[in-house]
Every structure is written in C-alpha cells, then in structure tokens.
Nucleic acid binder design. Sequence first.
DNA 1: GAGTGGTCTAGACCACGCG
DNA 2: GCGTGGTCTAGACCACTCA
Lengths: 248, 248
Amino acid sequence: MSGATLPTPAFSPLYQQIKGLILQSLQQGEWRPGEAIPSEMDLAARFRVSQGTVRKAIDELAAENLVVRRQGKGTFVATHAEQHVQYRFLKLLPDSGDVREEGPAQRRVLDCRRGRATADVARALALRSGDPVIQARRILAFAGVPTILEDIWLPGHAFKGLTAEHMASYQGPTYAMFELEYGVRMVRAEEKLRAVLPDADQAALLEVTTATPLLSVERIAYTYNDVPMELRRGLYRTDTHHYRNELS
Amino acid sequence: MSGATLPTPAFSPLYQQIKGLILQSLQQGEWRPGEAIPSEMDLAARFRVSQGTVRKAIDELAAENLVVRRQGKGTFVATHAEQHVQYRFLKLLPDSGDVREEGPAQRRVLDCRRGRATADVARALALRSGDPVIQARRILAFAGVPTILEDIWLPGHAFKGLTAEHMASYQGPTYAMFELEYGVRMVRAEEKLRAVLPDADQAALLEVTTATPLLSVERIAYTYNDVPMELRRGLYRTDTHHYRNELS
DNA sequence: GAGTGGTCTAGACCACGCG
DNA sequence: GCGTGGTCTAGACCACTCA
C-alpha cells in the first residue's frame, strides 16, 4: 500500500488476522476445551467481517485440529478427552488392526519426581540447564503384556504439584488430564523414531531380553505458539504391534 | 434426487462432484504431471458452475497433494519429479537435520526380476497368489554409508519391461520414473514400522552386524482410487539417521 | 421452527508472474 | 497490462440437531 521499499510488506489476509484473534481467545481460555465457541455469525459481528471470512479462519483451525465443527450444533474447542479417537498422538496399533480387541491400556506409574533439566532435556523443552522439571516413568500394557515404556519430562513451572498419584488415578489420556488440571493443551507434536536395543532395566520392565529390538520414539509435544511443553521418550515393543503412518 | 428409500440418500455437494470429474481427468491423463490444468474460470465454464465451486474442489485436491497451486501462474498436476521436496515419501533424515550436508543418495540396484506373487505380496497389492510381479532390491547410501536396503514389489501388468538398468539409470526419485515411463502416479502411501534385527544377508549389505537393530518400514503406495501399486519393504539404519514424523 | 454449520452464487478487488 | 490464483462480501438456500 504505502509503496515502502521493505523486502517483506508483511501482507496478511483478513481471515488470517481473524484466525489469530480466535487463536488468542483459545489460548487465553475464553472457551474451555469441549465447549462450543460462538457461532460464525456471532464471530462475524464481533470482528466486523463477513461470515465467509470467519468461516475461512475456522476452516484452518479445524484443519489443524484446534477446533471441531459439528453441523447443526456448532464449533467446539478440541480436547484430548472424550474425543472419538482416544490417544490422538499414539500411532501404535495391534497387528490385528482392531483396537477394540485388546481393550484399553493398563497403566502403571513407576516414578514421578521433581528434578533439574539436563542439557538435552533443557534443549528439547526450551529451558535452561538446571531449570526445574518433573520426570515420570510409566508402563502401558495391552491385554496384560507390557508394551510401552515411557519417560516423560515436563517443565516444572507449568505442572506444579504433579504427583505419581495424579498420573495413576486419572482415567483416560494423560493429555486430557493436562488440560483439566493444568490448563495445558497439547496441540501438535514431533516424533523421531529409531530402532534400538534396551538396557537391562528397560528390558526387564518390558519383559523382553536385551537382544530384542525396540522402537524408540522421542516425542516433543507443543502447546499454542509452538511452545514445547513435554518431552517423552518411549520404547515400543513391535512384536505384536506396529507404528502406523500415512503419507500423502 | 430420485427420492429413493435408501438408508443413505448419498447426498453429494456439487463441489465434490466437480472434484470427482477433475480427478477423473487427472487419472485419464488429460493433463500430464507437471503441466497446468485449466484455469478456475475455464473449469467453471466447462462444468457450468461458479468459480467458487471449482475453487473448493481444487482446494481439496491441493490439500491431498494431487495438484499444486501457484499464484499468478496456475494450478499444476503434482509430480514426484522436480518437486521442491525430493523423495516426498521418504521420512528418514540425517540426525544433523541438514539434508544438503549429505547430498543426494547413491543408489545401487542389486536385483530386478520377474516373478510370481506370494500370498502376502498378493494381499498387499490386491492381486491373486501367483500373479506376475516384478521384484527389485536396491541399496541407498548417504555419504558413502549404506543406509537403506529396499525390496520392492510391483504388479507385473502395470510395469511390463522394467529392468535393473531402467531403475539404475534414471536420475531422481523412482516414483518420478514410474510417472514418466509407465504413467503410474503414486498418490499416497501407508507405512507400518517395526524394530527388527537383520538376517545375515541384510546385515552384510548394510555393513552392520546381525545384532544391530534396524527400522523396518513396510510401505504400500497407492495410485488413484486407492489402488495399491507398490509394496516396499525397507530396512533403515538409524545410527546416523532417524525417521521423522509430525503429529497434529 | 429456530439456530447451526455447509453449499452455492455473483461480483469486486488484490497480489503475483510474466511478457 | 493481462491472466492467474487469492481474498472478501452479501445473500440465498440446504442439511442437520434439538427442543
């Protein structure tokens, strides 16, 4: 517009700005997870734009799984609880393909303690070495067979007071508890996969030998604005399960 | 439309029907990979609908990576060749994260022969046991280090005359060659990952011991209409590389 | 039947690429 | 300057949900 000589005029479409405003409201908790956000018409009036512009903004939020549209009912803040798909971020499936067969996972929390971030944990969580973190270790079993061993690191400042009892008692996805108890909503994640051999401890916990290859899954989960809020190192047994991925 | 008493009236929005028609043209090769498809206005005129309806149809095709939009230039049929991202389906990255550092993969084709589908290969490719297939084996090396060992199965009827020389001589992604030489466009894929130990042959080819855990990646690649056209079993070394995945 | 998201249209204008 | 895709609007109508 101004004819400035800047290399990037930073043109931003209206709907992107609206999307930003809605995102801000989501982030500030104006609407709780699972609740409906205002109708498209209401939002259009609030932001003084047409319904179509709001629609396009919400379309993108829905594509990013931040929000869920339900025709005839409204648009709802996405939640890890009571979502059709339990364990949204877990891609390990039984080889049979039928998740119902094996039923829900049995969880056993082995440990949950306060500590200080090591260099690599600090890097993953965008903290400084020595910052307080909470570390937990647990096992997930399917049909009685221990299948996943997970070590979890959380920034201490955001999860004050988290205890093993907390993690053990809550039914449903851990990420749902994070939403309810700490107001932390995991929005996306990145995983790095490797094939590894377990050490003696890990092997014992998963009831395999130290010669059994396991799938190592390092996950960093992010909340809004790409802020990392969890580091999770998982060891998956892949003798009866596999990690499934879709490419397009 | 007909007011039938079917349980599913099969209501289909106009833009979905338009999408189907465009898909059909893509499939029949009316526009070649890399070429531009007609402008939105042209397509709107051709199908007697508004530009907005065509736009929504193309939006979905673009979201599925079947087509690429370029503002000011047009909409182009997606191709595995000369795409910004080489190896669209390969998620293995060097731990450094910098793909340029290691340069392009060195490829060595070990084998390429005609054969008959075993039961499991037939199931994956929706063939019958004993149907003709082409089987190939090759190694990809990065910076001189053999890193990926792949066995590839292709339905014989669609890839007549494919030879080892073919596979070795072509520069660039194999999927690009499939497009150019056989008119087969891989559109999406599913992968199953496991941690395994190699047998003696595999270990020797990858220059590791039989005690080295490897990432097993079984991929089924599909062309249009979810028709499977390739089964690929890969063994990935994950000592210097990792499989990267994004979740949302 | 009222309210919500979903579709479809027509038209105006903007940003981009290229000759 | 023209043609392309990209944005924005306003309005009509459809499909779904629920009281």
